[in-house]
Structures are given as C-alpha cells and as structure tokens.
Design a protein around this nucleic acid. Structure first.
Length: 884
RNA sequence: GCCGGGAUGGCGGAAUCGGUAGACGCACGGGACUCAAAAUCCCGCGGCCGCAAGGUCAUGCGAGUUCGACUCUCGCUCCCGGCACCA
C-alpha cells in the first residue's frame, strides 16, 4: 500500500477498472428489481459548474447505494443541446452553434468521467442530433392530427433595431440587451400545444405522486390554478344584444360591482381607442411595457375609461368600462367585474381614480369598519344586495348563478390559470417545426416519410434574427400536397420540448424506427429524478403533459414519468464587490479575497489580495458569471481529487437545501480521506491477515459470548459502529447524505479511539484474535457506507485490505442488533421540564423503580424542595419529568 | 404583486414520533513534535454570572397550546426559488 493518499492515482486506477469491466452498462434483466436513477441532463454551456457536480453526485450516490442493495440500476447521461447560449457564443466568437455545442459536450463528458460517475455512456445522446429531434417533429405531427397542436397569435418581445424577437432574459429594463432600443410587444402567429386539455388530469394526478415533495406539488397545483366560478355577461348599454364577458370566483359580490375593466389588448379597448387619441396613447404605452407577468404585477395600477358602459345583469345599473393595466388578457376573458370593496386590486384602482366603492359582504359576526382602508376579501354574509342579502358565500354564489342563468346572462364554469404552451421560437438553434407554407394549400404538415426536417449545422447567427429565414437552401421546398414551390417554416421549437421526453429515449437510444420501443416498459417510470428546484413547475409539468400525450397516442402505458423526485438546492458562494464613486459595481472572485479575523476568529473585514484595500461582502448568492463568484470544479478535482469533491458536496448540507461553498470545508473533507488512508495503512497487516484467514468473507462474524464483560472496550466499539451504522442506513434511505458522511467520520473517530483503548490494554494480547475480527468487521462497515459517496478510495482500500469481491456490488451492511444492547441506560431527569441531572438505570427497570430513583435524586430533591408532586412523566428509555 | 420555501454558536449544519439543543465538520485559542514553518497529533470552544460547584439566558421577532416546543398554532421581519422566450 502507498504511504500517502494519492487521489489522482487511485482514481485513475479505479476508473480504468470499472471501464475494463463495463461495470456500469445497464441491461434489461426482468428477473431483477430495476432502479432507474436520472439526474436532469445538462445544457452543454462549456464546462461543468458546481450545480452539476452536486446534481450528479447525488444521483451517483443513489445508484451506487441501490446497486449495493441488489438492484439492476440505470444511470444514463445526455445533453440538452439546443438553446440560446449557443447562439450568443456563436455571435461572440463567429463559430457555428453546432461546433461550439459539440466541443462543449466533449469537454464536459471528460469532466463527468473524471468524477467517477457510474454512468452507462452507451446510452448517451444529444438533443440537437436529427436522430433525436425527428421524434419531436413526429410527435408534434401526431398532436396536430389530434387537435392537440394548433396555431394562433402570440405576443413576443420585439427589438425594432435588430428586427428580431428577444427572449425575456434579453430584455433589460425594457430595452434590448444589444441595441438598447425600447422593446415593443408584437403579435405573431405561433404554434401551441394544448396542455390545458390535460389540466384536470395534471392536477388530479398530483395526488398519486407520494414520492414528490409536497411543495412542488403545491406549486404545480397553484400553477394549474383550477377555480370554480361564474361567467357573467354584462350587456353593452348601447348594444344590449351583445355583452362583455367576465369570469369571477366571487359571484357573491356581484351586487357590489361598480365598474368593469378590460386588458389593454382586449378588442373593446381597441374599439374605444378608435376615436379617443388619449386612450390610444395609453394602450400604446401598455404595449411598450413588459410582457413579463412578474414585472406587470409590480407596476403601479393605472387605467383609463373607455367611454363605454355596460348594464349590470341583475340590478340594471349602468357601469363604466375601463382599460386597466392590471387585467391580464391571458386569464379568463381578459376582462373583470370590479368590486372594490371586496378585491384588493380593484380597491386600490378605485381609490386612485375615485370610483365608487360599494360594500355587500360583511363578517358573519360583527360588521365592517367604515370607511374601508383595504378590501374585505374574506367570505362572509351578503347584505345591501336586494333579494340576494343575508346569504353565506356558497348560497349567494348558487342563488346569483341561478338568477343569471335564468336571464341567460351567466353560468357556472371552471377556469384554469394554466395556459396553452407556445412552442414557436424565432430562433435558429432548435428543432425545426415540420410545417410547409404553401400559397395554395396553406400550412401543410411535413409527411412522416420526409422526416426529419434537418437543421443545417453550419449557420452563424449575427443578432439580426433567425439565419434560417435567410437560407433558401433550408426554406425553399415543394409543397408535399400539390408539389408547387413552397416555403418551409423557419421557427424552431422551445427547448422544453426536447427535455420533455428524453428520459424515455435513454431506454432505447439506438432505436431508428420508432420514438420508443418495448424497452421503455422495463425501465420506465424513472424511479428517482433529481434536479434543481428551479424546474419545479415548467419542465416537470411539460414532461408530465408529454407523457400523457404519448400514452394517449399508444406509445407507452404509464401515466406519470417520475415516481420519486428530489429537488436539490442551489450552490452558493460569497459575493465580494466594490462600488465606485459613479455607482458602478465591480465583483471580485472570492479566491482573490483575504478575510480578516479578530482573536476569536470572528470576521472583521475583507480585502482584495492584489491591493490590500477593503471590499464589501454582498452575502451568499448563487454561483454566477455576473457575480464573479463561481468555483471551477476542474481546479477542485485536480487539486484534491474527485472523492474529496464528492464528499464535500455531500457533507456540506442536505441535498434539498442550498449549499454554501467553503474552501476550508473542502480541506476538511480531504483531511478526513487522508486520515482514513493512514488508518487503513496502519492496520493493513492485521486486517489483511484476517481477510486471508477467512477467505475475504465480511458477512459473518462470531464473537465469544460474554465479550461485553471480558473485552468491554471492544464491545463498546462494536456498539458505537453498529449504532452509527443504524443511523447511516436510516439517513441513506431518506437521502440525507450529509449525516451519512458525518456517520463515516464518526466511525473513523470511534475506530481510532477504540484501537487506542484496546492497544494499550493488558488484555490486548490475550484477545488478539477477537480484536482482529472486530477491526475487520468494523472497517468493512465503514468502507461500505462510504462507498457510494467516495467510491474510488473505497474501491482501493477494499482490495488492499483483502475483502472479497468488488465493493461496487458488496451488500450494504446490516446492523447487528445484539451489539447494541446495553445493560444500563442513562435517563435524563427533569423538574418542571427543566434538565436537572441524569441517572443510570437497568435496561429493564420498572416504572415504579424509575420514579422512586428519580424522586430520591439529589438535584430533584433540591428543586422539588418539599413542594407537592403533581405528576411524574416517564418517557421510556429517555427521561423522567417531575412536575410540582 | 402572486405562488412556494427557509431562518439554530464565529461559520456549514445535527437533533428519526413534542422529550438532554449544538452530533459531524470548519474557524479560532492553547499545547506537543520541529532549528523554524507546513503537515500531523492532543486539549478547549454558544452568551452572561462564578475561583469552582453550579446558575442563568439562548433555535429570526411577538403571542399561544403543552408537564415539556428548534419541532405544533396564529401574527410579523428578513432572505431565497418560480412567474410561462434562460435552462
């Protein structure tokens, strides 16, 4: 055995060993339980970042753990290879997105391999290859046939200078990121997928996902936003045959409606603006504002009257119609009835524009405090509502809905917040939408036998829009129907399409004739899916939708793609910066910062190493280029090795929480592995000899009866190791890897203390064989619980110490319950719930005996101090609480 | 703004079912080894009072339930994720 821990050597050696044996190749074995563990595939942005390292380490720990538990595991990897950054890089470096993407994939693959992930690389694919994306196109055509895909107008960000559509992230403070021009909203034709057709199932099926975090399910449910309400028609005052339709969940407040409001994109707004230049200007202004809902919601509530009036469907009162920037065209009817007294947004708007506020709901007990300072939005009892007064929420809704129905001016209806999924992108680096536009035949789907529509890989975007629109070789084509000259669609698909079904393709990446084949039946569902919490809604909802569509087309039989979901937290690092006199902020790499400490180790300041002058701390933030606080995994692996990187990542915090970067934490992890190495080397002769004696067996250990009395230190060591193992197994099952790591550290501490105790004892010689056995046993446990986290060093030591077989498939250790039994246990003694001492009692002591002992305990007597005892609470095996 | 989540020593975090708050690690202090330094090893380490024994306060803030609350309930504060064209 090497004198020193050399991660580079043992990691290379272990990886070659696995490679030579094709250890991670997954095959369908119907007789064995399978475990499909999937981490979200990366976007090939250039090099791995710490978020990837964390994501894939979590997945790797799980696959290695399940392998030890006897499962047939699959851990695939691929590339989410279409997307905007490739176009940006192409513009910056004048390199085609394809080349940039493939180069990145090659580099990142090497990085993943150097981390020792147990990936079946045979199944690797990239979504930018026609072999993959042809099935996007194929399924899109099936959806078109089923009416699940359709075309309609959609709103996009338009940069008037570059004459191009911008992504939301390319719009900064309302201006194009490259041109600085004010961005406009523009309506263009787009393809949509009818995810709303599945809204009810997507919502209902959440209940059948017990393996998903509650918060993700709640977020999805809120996103789908099913609400039961009433659609109400307000007839136009000057044209009673026609009406303004609104949707409300609070029909009980209808009698309190004092105006109606429509979105600026609503047809009525446009009509009103025809002879009202001020209104036209206001609508124009709304058009210039953002398309992003988050920004829209934060805007000050503004509006203008349209000059139109509608008639209240029950009271007959004339109500004005306003255009308001807080009404969303995309939700409901794009119009609302405004009840300022009982809706906060309406209240603010009405207050600002001095519109009437009419109260019609009051608390069931007491009354409203007038004048209102905010809307009363609770459900209550109706009043001042003619015949609809004195009713509770449900009664009022029912009665009012019935009255409206009778007048044919409304009906109960279910409304979803969820909108259909717009997939058209006016960009080059994506999957072409398989449609041909023909002057005679209209929009014609590309026939299946002409798929895939291949994206040329040699174009370089220049920032002035999609280069496909300037490439006749791509867009010039014949109409599949009539054969006349036609124009190919140049829009490409949203990259969320690519990621909506890649997990099926891993089961059969080589299948040329179909999207999926019968192998998906063996591997799917995904047993464990792992990815960032930022994907909680969109990606996961689209994937669930896509799965249901594939099911309904008859490709698969499952309803849901992912049985268990783990949403990992972000990787953070401290942000350091300086603000210059003109307000410009410069961010500094934390590696360039020196932290100043006082004598207690408490931080007093930080300065830049280069000039020794102070910098400010901006707290912890996600690692990003813009904050200059990223740490390159490559440097970490090169300096400390993959095992240290993996151990630190797992130890620093539980997977679901954020993880704070710490250089000294990394050193701590490295120190532990060195300590483990030195310990193994020190005891190698004894352990290896024991291995030889027992033919490498690590499954059965027998000890003489009464060992607890003859060799108490050994019994204590075994008890500690098995107790720690019990906790580690529990934590492994619940995926709390930080405490599994600390259990390993604890075990090494116990071992070092344990051997010291035995070593120095006079009994050591007499009990040498028992000691040797216990050391062999406990070391095998330590190496096995560490194996999923730090597989290289575990692999190496396992072999060096002569344990039989391959640790990769060694069974997860089991707890020897008999090692845990103690004759005496410690009980905590409390008086009135406050800790006052402890006492040792026999394991099987009776309640009465415990109570008697507690009452005679000196500190109990001191605190009871003669007061009458009300009651004694005894929690078996834990504590006694004397209440006075 | 709306939806979801979080807050525990100097720091990351632990506490499995409401039962000893601070496991494990980092940082820091003291010591050993060394010509010296690094590495390594040993000891200490929440605050306050106390020589000590011990006492007392303490899990973001404020209330409540309970014999007992980091854990449950209600109200706040601050931070983070998502908001449909970043992936």
């Amino acid at each position: 055995m090497q004198a020193h821990y050399r991660p580079d050597e043992i990691e290379r050696e272990a990886q070659q060993y696995w490679e030579a044996r094709k250890a991670f190749r997954a095959e369908e074995r119907p007789d064995q339980p399978k475990y499909y563990c999937l981490s979200m595939f990366p976007y090939p942005s250039g090099k791995l970042h710490m978020g990837h390292v964390r994501n894939y380490t979590i997945g790797d720990v799980l696959t290695r753990f399940y392998r030890m538990k006897g499962y047939n595991v699959l851990q695939p990897m691929g590339w989410d290879a279409f997307g905007l950054p490739a176009e940006n890089a192409a513009m910056a470096n004048n390199v085609p997105p394809a080349k940039w993407t493939y180069d990145n994939i090659a580099y990142m693959k090497k990085q993943l391999q150097s981390l020792g992930f147990a990936i079946d690389w045979q199944r690797e694919f990239a979504t930018c290859k026609p072999d993959y994306y042809r099935w996007n196109q194929w399924l899109f055509l099936r959806m078109l046939e089923k009416g699940l895909a359709y075309k309609k107008a959609g709103i996009v960000n338009w940069d008037p200078v570059d004459q191009t559509v911008l992504a939301n992230e390319q719009v900064i403070d309302g201006r194009g990121w490259r041109t600085g021009a004010l961005v406009e909203k523009r309506e263009i034709p787009m393809y949509y997928l009818k995810i709303t057709a599945y809204a009810d199932e997507l919502l209902g099926a959440l209940e059948q996902l017990p393996g998903w975090p509650e918060r993700v399910k709640t977020m999805q449910a809120n996103w789908i936003g099913k609400s039961e309400g009433v659609e109400i028609a307000f007839p136009y005052a000057d044209d009673p045959a026609r009406s303004l339709k609104v949707f409300t969940t609070r029909a009980d407040t209808l009698m309190g409606a004092t105006y109606c409001a429509v979105a600026s994109e609503h047809p009525l707004a446009a009509k009103a603006a025809n002879n009202n230049p001020r209104l036209a200007a206001f609508i124009e202004e709304c058009k210039r504002s953002t398309v992003m809902e988050a920004e829209l919601a934060a805007l000050e509530k503004r509006g203008m009257p349209t000059g139109f009036f509608v008639v209240h469907p029950l009271s007959g009162e004339k109500l004005p119609v306003w255009v308001a920037n807080y009404v969303l065209m995309a939700y409901g009817e794009g119009a609302v009835m405004a009840v300022p007294a009982h809706d906060q947004r309406d209240f603010e708007f009405a207050t600002h524009y001095h519109l009437p506020i009419k109260c019609v709901i009051k608390p069931s007990q007491g009354s409203l405090k007038l004048p209102l300072t905010e809307a009363y939005i609770e459900h209550g009892i109706s009043f001042d509502s003619d015949e609809y007064s004195g009713l509770n929420f449900q009664q009022a809704v029912d009665v009012i809905a019935a009255a409206l129905k009778k007048k044919k001016l409304g009906r109960k209806r279910i409304q979803y917040r969820l909108r259909d999924w717009g997939i058209s992108r006016q960009r080059y680096w994506g999957c072409p939408i398989p449609i041909v536009h023909c002057d005679s035949c209209g929009d014609v789907p590309v026939p299946d036998d002409q798929l895939p529509v291949v994206l040329p890989e040699n174009l370089v975007p220049d920032g002035t829009g999609n280069p496909l629109t300037k490439t006749p070789a791509f867009y010039e084509c014949q109409c599949p129907k009539c054969g006349k000259q036609a124009k190919r669609e140049t829009d490409t698909m949203d990259t969320f399409v690519d990621s909506s079904w890649y997990y099926f393709r891993y089961a059969c990446p080589d299948q040329k004739l179909a999207m999926v084949d019968e192998r998906v039946r063996y591997w799917l569902q995904v047993d464990q899916y792992i990815g960032g919490i930022e994907h909680a809604i969109l990606h996961l909802l689209y994937s669930r939708f896509w799965t249901k569509v594939m099911r309904d087309i008859g490709l698969i039989k499952i309803d849901e793609p992912f049985t268990n979901l783990l949403t990992q937290g972000m990787v953070l690092n401290e942000i350091f910066f300086r603000k210059s006199a003109n307000g410009r902020i410069t961010y500094y790499d934390p590696a360039e910062i020196e932290v100043e400490l006082d004598e207690h180790g408490i931080r007093t300041g930080a300065k830049l190493k280069a000039d020794g002058k102070p910098v400010e701390s901006g707290g912890m933030g996600t690692m990003s280029k813009s904050k200059n606080n990223g740490v390159d995994p490559q440097a970490l692996i090169e300096e400390y090795g993959a095992d240290t990187a993996r151990l630190f990542m797992m130890f620093a915090s539980p997977p679901e929480q954020t993880l704070e970067w710490s250089d000294s934490g990394v050193e701590g992890a490295s120190r532990f592995l060195k300590r483990l190495w030195m310990f193994a080397r020190q005891w190698e002769p004894i352990i290896a000899e024991e291995s030889k004696r027992r033919g490498g067996d690590f499954t059965r250990y027998e000890y003489p009866t009464g060992i607890a009395n003859t060799v108490p230190t050994l019994a204590a060591l075994r008890r500690e190791i098995h107790m720690t193992l019990k906790q580690a197994s529990f934590d492994m099952e619940r995926k709390q890897f930080n405490t599994v790591s600390s259990a390993a550290m604890k075990m090494l501490n116990s071992l070092q203390e344990g051997v010291l105790g035995v070593d120095s004892a006079a009994q050591a010689v007499a009990t040498a064989d028992v000691f040797q056995r216990a050391l062999h046993e406990t070391m095998s446990i330590l190496l096995r619980i560490l194996n999923p986290i730090t597989p290289h060093i575990s692999h190496n030591l396992w072999r060096e110490l002569g344990y039989s077989g391959d640790i990769l498939t060694a069974p997860w250790p089991t707890v020897d319950e008999s090692a845990l039994i103690e004759e005496e246990i410690e009980l905590v003694v409390q008086v009135n719930g406050k800790l006052r001492g402890n006492m040792r009692v026999p394991r099987e002591a009776a309640r009465e005996a415990i109570e008697k002992m507690a009452l005679s305990h000196p500190s109990v007597r001191k605190y009871v101090n003669g007061q009458p005892i009300k009651k004694v609470v005894i929690v078996p095996g834990r504590l006694v609480n004397v209440v006075v």
